[in-house]
Amino acid sequence: MAQQETDQQLSAEFIVDTEDCEEREAAYRERGTARPITVVGNPVLHKECRDVTEFDDELGRLIDDMFASQRAAEGVGLAANQIGVDRKVFIYDCPDDDGVRHVGAVVNPVLDELPPERRALEEANEGCLSVPTAYANLARPDYALVRGRDAAGNPIAIEGTGYFARCLQHETDHLYGRLYIDRLSKRERKDALRQMDEGTPRYEVVPND
Rank of each mutant, 00 (worst) to 15 (best):
E13K: 15
V16P: 00
T18V: 13
R24Y: 03
A26N: 12
A27D: 15
A27F: 08
E30S: 14
R31C: 07
G32Y: 11
R35F: 03
V40M: 10
E48G: 13
D51L: 14
F67Q: 04
A68D: 10
S69A: 06
Q70T: 11
R71H: 13
A73V: 06
E74K: 13
N81F: 02
I83A: 07
V89M: 12
V89W: 11
F90W: 06
P95M: 08
R101V: 11
A105P: 11
V106S: 04
V106W: 02
N108D: 06
L114E: 03
E123C: 07
A124R: 14
N125Y: 05
E126T: 05
L129Y: 10
L129C: 03
V131W: 07
D142G: 02
G148W: 10
G148Y: 11
R149H: 15
R149E: 15
D150G: 06
I156H: 09
I158P: 02
E159N: 09
G160F: 05
G162H: 09
R166L: 03
H170W: 10
E171S: 05
E171V: 07
T172E: 08
D173P: 07
I181K: 00
R183K: 14
K186S: 11
E188S: 13
A192N: 09
Q195A: 06
E198T: 05
G199S: 08
P207E: 14
